[in-house]
Write a protein that binds this DNA or RNA. Sequence first.
DNA 1: TTTTTGGTTCAGGATTTTATGAACTAACAA
DNA 2: TTGTTAGTTCATAAAATCCTGAACCAAAAA
Lengths: 153, 153
Amino acid sequence: MKLTDRKREIIERVGVAYEKKGLQPVVGRIMGLLLVVEPAEATFEEIQEELQVSKSAVSTALTFLQAKETVEYTTKPGERKRYFRLRMRDWKSELKKDFDEVLNMESLINEIIELKENKETDFCCRLSEMKDFFGFMRKELPLLLKKFEASRK
Amino acid sequence: MKLTDRKREIIERVGVAYEKKGLQPVVGRIMGLLLVVEPAEATFEEIQEELQVSKSAVSTALTFLQAKETVEYTTKPGERKRYFRLRMRDWKSELKKDFDEVLNMESLINEIIELKENKETDFCCRLSEMKDFFGFMRKELPLLLKKFEASRK
DNA sequence: TTTTTGGTTCAGGATTTTATGAACTAACAA
DNA sequence: TTGTTAGTTCATAAAATCCTGAACCAAAAA
């Protein structure tokens, strides 16, 4: 495999970014690796070798990423090895899942407001403002996505 | 203190939501507690009692939340106890920090693209598209915030 | 001066998360 | 039928995280 130090540094940075999102270290490193390698795919063995982790760690991480529909593999005729790669096609649907967290926040805040006996406090007004903002975002984010798509045609 | 089961349930849900964001369990529970109590403040002792954790856990979590400028305290004349509460005033600047992560993503993706020898691949085009999207969001999100503010006057 | 209140600090223990290694499977090859 | 390749599975080891308890401190009260 033999990657440059620069690429290795990026793998780590991508790894850390994914760790912060709650994914496990090896999962994040694999994402990084698949982002920087050229061509954009790697075999099980290459991943294991480059990241210096056990087969089981690679297997578990790849199973997870495939379940999440983030990674897929192809095979080449006459070879039994799998070539793993990122499913870049649907980064937009990934994003929509992130957007949906807004919806969760909105309903959680709303449940908190509903419990309040006194809804006239400054605190409660702020909460309402936040709730409204999340509602606003829930409506506006899909529009923004459309606007982006329109801007590229 | 004596909270209803409903409020305790919400504290846990808020706690889990914050854990997912990478904060420690006790930090998240304190956020939940300060969101549901009425009036919206609690003493060190009340927090400790309600969450059933040690003084040190409460102290560490509160120190962290104050450093993050998410929590502050007031005192009452003649009392030495601190009354901790959420700094709800600036939830918008909190939000802006979240928005800024978009910027990080943009530059990370850009660094990856710059390393690519062949920029004509399908993979690279998708990456560019993502980069453009993050650039687009970086410009649009602040506008969206303004639009929201305008809609409330 | 001593005690009480309201915390803070930190070493170490418990728990959780993450990675390993050994045993296993399935498919193909010799 | 035995060996090899390309992984998977799972018990447990290792590491990281989180919390506790004991010692401590500063300010006010007794």
